[in-house]
Write a protein that binds this DNA or RNA. Structure first.
Length: 198
DNA sequence: CACGGGATCGTCT
DNA sequence: GACGATCCCGTGT
């Protein structure tokens, strides 16, 4: 089942990034369902994290979404091409988010391959924040959607937590500009999974 | 396998 | 007007 608001309003975005590993992310457009198991995430925290778009509570048109209550989507365009999908966390006014970096395909694999224009099942299908969005049909148009609304086309299913012993932590990707935050080990993945990025 | 570059556009200065 | 929380393909070894 979909977790409720209180799950997402957790103010510890780092532990939530770990908790989201193993959970199922899906989209349902009409009768078309595609889904995957989250295997890689990154935490971003507005309060003190220079890698976060909303660092130091910076409000712009784009970051406004991150200030919404936990449980909303935050989707933005990267390098003009890729739509990166995040889940906003913490209470309204506290701009934290978890970037979903990789999923392992579960359902609607044919549809995902069609969207990706790929004709064989390989990690490249959904391993990476840009390609996973494409596979699930996510785009910037789906910014600020409420995941706790049972009628929303995007949803999360809470599964059993992945034990710490199966989680690998490391520095985040592509944030060279983030000063002393570059080394924070806020990237998490499930050990030995075939669908990890890079 | 490591690398280098091109694609492409919303957002912020 | 510059630049990214990326990806893919080409080249060379």
């Amino acid at each position: 089942m979909r977790p409720d608001r209180s799950f997402f309003e957790n103010n510890d975005v780092v532990s939530l990034a770990k908790r989201l590993l193993g959970c199922t992310l899906f989209t349902k457009f009409g009768e078309t369902i595609t889904a995957g198991r989250i295997v890689e995430t990154e935490a971003y925290r507005g309060r003190d994290d220079k890698a976060c778009h909303a660092f130091n509570y910076k409000r712009t048109k784009r970051t406004e979404t991150m200030f919404l209550a936990g449980g909303h989507t935050y989707v933005y365009l990267c390098y003009g091409i890729h739509h990166l999908f995040n889940i906003v966390t913490s209470k309204e006014g506290e701009p934290d988010a978890v970037l979903i970096r990789s999923i392992e395909p579960l359902e609607g694999i044919e549809e995902m391959m069609k969207r990706r224009k790929i004709n064989s099942l390989k990690p490249q299908l959904t391993a990476g924040p840009g390609v996973l969005s494409k596979a699930l049909g996510l785009s910037i148009k789906m910014n600020a959607i409420d995941l706790t609304d049972a009628s929303s086309p995007i949803g999360l299913i809470l599964n059993d937590p992945v034990p710490d012993s199966s989680i690998l932590a490391g520095p985040r990707i592509g944030i060279d500009y983030a000063g002393d935050c570059v080394d924070w080990p806020w990237r998490f993945c499930i050990k030995n999974n075939d669908y990890l990025s890079r």
